[in-house]
Amino acid sequence: MNTLLEVSGVSVTFDGFRAINNLSFRIGPAEMRAIIGPNGAGKTTFMDIVTGKTKPDQGRILWGEKSISLRGMSEARIAREGVGRKFQKPTVFEDQTVHENLLMALRNKRGPFAVLFYKPAAKDLVRVEALAEEIGLHDALWRKSGELSHGQKQWLEIGMLLAQEPRLLLVDEPAAGMTPAEREHTTNILTEAAKTRAVVVVEHDMEFVRRLNCKVTVLHEGAVLAEGSLDHVTANQDVIDVYLGR
C-alpha cells in the first residue's frame, strides 16, 4: 500500500512536558482512520504538528508520492499542499455569510493578486451551491454564519473543508454538539470523502467511531498504544485500562 502521510519518531515538549512522545503514524491516499484516546492524550497536538501549527522537536513528517517534508513549511503552505483541518471548536468567520465562508475556502489560487482580481466563475458558484446543499445549509447561504446554531457551524466547517478539496482531512471531534440524525449525516459525508482521499477523525464517541467502520489508532500519553480494527483495540487490555475502563 502506498502512503500519503508518514509521521515517524515525532516528539514535542511543552515546558518540559512531553505531549507527543516518539509518535509514528501513516495513512494511505484513500483511507479512513479514527484516532481515540483519553483527554490530553495528544490527539489535537498531533493535528497541530501535521498542519504546521506546532513545530516538533524531532522526527520526520513526509508527504505525498515524492515524500517531501512538511516540517518547516508554513501553515498556509501545508494547507495548499492539500491538508485540510477542522477544529475541535467550530471556527467559521462569523461576521461573513455562509456563501462568503464557502467561497473563501473553495480551491482556487491563494495569492493576494489572484484573490484581488478574482471573480467567481459560474462553476465556482455551482460548486458552492452544491456544497451548501450537501451540508444542509442551502437555505442559509446568505445568512451571517454567526447566526447559525452550533451544529450548523460544525457543518459549515465541514463544508469549507470539502471546498478546499484537500488530499488529507484532519477532523477533530466533528460530532460534538450534534443530534443523532446529524451525526449520521456526518458519518455519511466522511465515509464518502474517504473514498477519494485520506480522512483522520478524532472522536470520543465510540458509537460514532463504530459507524465509521475503519481502522482505529489509540493514542495515550503522546504515543500509539494500539492500532487495528475497533474490536481489536477495544479487546486490548492496555486500552481498557487507560481509556475504556475508566
Binding site: E75, A76, A79, G84, F87, R110
Partner: peptide, 10 residues
C-alpha cells in the same frame, strides 16, 4: 490562524 489553515499566506 483559521485563514492560514485555508491556505492563505496571512
Amino acid at each position: 490562524a483559521r485563514v492560514r489553515f485555508l491556505g492563505y499566506s496571512v
